[in-house]
Design a protein around this nucleic acid. Structure first.
Lengths: 211, 211
DNA sequence: CATGAGTTAGGACATTGTCCAAATGTAAAA
DNA sequence: TTTTACATTTGGACAATGTCCTAACTCATG
């Protein structure tokens, strides 16, 4: 992006990620960009609008990753999770201010509601496919709901816990920890071939971190 | 509490819980109390100091609940979790701004570090007792670490997820949902008698909500 | 060159947390 | 009772924030 709007978005994401959305003022952002505050408000009437645009970028990036895969394997499922986690690192400022943003920013809140409904349905469908394909042994709907609920909770808040409790670890190490957690969550319900894929993925299969 | 300091703390907690720490200004708090802003800063030099005091109250309340019980049962463990969740509802403003507070408030962050270390150790010890007493069947340390890690994550962030996704439910219903989640998490490792206690607790045993 | 839409600059505004000096209240000492 | 010393409360100042508005500038098009 070479235009002003794009520059604002890029630098805002960079600074928000480093120091937190609430702690980066528009004047400081403007100063770093060598422009005036009024110029930012020309493109984004409010700071919320700027944050909303970033949340849309994350949403779009996730949409390219999360879909119902008819031929999903346990390895594929974990890779999908891995890719989502990597996206979340890129937009970590949003997830670290998750509750705050959702309470304040009506735009983001409204968009999230619909996105999240689809997302949970997709995860649920994939878990169902894994069961149908002999990767998971689920006795009833409650077991499936439990897995989906827990995976959703972990996926939403792992980065918040990591920021507080595992700040000394790299993003890649943090992701490894929470992928391991997800894997352990699935293991009691995993068939033999699924267990092999989980153990294999956790020991060698992690995707490369972002640049 | 009839003194000014106590009144400030009580009303602040009430308003923070209702509308969020970030959205209640000191002037509004002072106005509701019928005092001046400077009077608040006399007792709490900064807003962070006020928040820190509230976090100490939560810490103290939890300390009375969370301890290593030599004769712990599965029912007792779930009751302990239930009591912690009820405490968290009382101080939900702190948990909803968890990451935010930890990033900004050095006092709270420092206190939390040591508290959390002890707390995780205590939970881990109780899980160990459950295994020793024939409630849990843990094959290795990794299984125990997994349970402790996941329980810690859920216990820290359930209220944040509930505020966003289950705002239409009462606190008691929210707690029921996350106690069920914790129960389901334990079930694959639970012995027969533990399974009975879990199912029994989830169907009838939930503690009453706060007034 | 002139026009007009798009863009940028600069400053005003209300609100926030913080800080301070003066005024007031209170309770023990003289 | 009066004085003194300390605790409490007041009222306003301060810098920083997000938001808003008007004037100035840029630049392709007629």
């Amino acid at each position: 992006m070479t235009n002003t709007r794009g520059k604002i978005l890029d630098k805002a994401l960079e600074m928000f990620n480093e120091r937190g959305i609430e702690y980066v003022g528009l004047r400081e952002l403007a100063a770093v960009l060598g422009i005036r505050v009024g110029n930012i408000t020309y493109y984004f009437a409010t700071k919320d609008d700027l944050v909303f645009e970033l949340s849309q970028q994350l949403s779009k990036a996730n949409a390219e990753i999360i879909f119902v895969d008819e031929n999903i394997t346990m390895t594929g499922f974990l890779e999908m999770l891995n890719r989502v986690y990597l996206n979340q690192v890129k937009f970590r400022c949003l997830l670290l201010s998750f509750v705050h943003v959702m309470e304040q920013n009506k735009l983001v809140a409204a968009a999230y509601k619909t996105t999240q409904r689809n997302r949970n349905a997709t995860i649920s469908a994939n878990i169902g496919k894994l069961a149908a394909s002999g990767y998971l042994d689920l006795k009833n709907d409650e077991e499936q709901d439990f897995l989906v609920s827990t995976l959703a909770l972990v996926s939403r808040f792992w980065i918040s816990e990591a920021a507080i409790s595992f700040a000394h670890l790299s993003s890649q190490e943090q992701i490894r920890h929470y992928l391991r957690l997800a894997g352990n969550l699935l293991i009691p319900y995993a068939t033999a071939k699924a267990k092999r894929q989980i153990r294999d993925f956790l020991s060698t299969g992690q995707l490369a971190s972002i640049s």
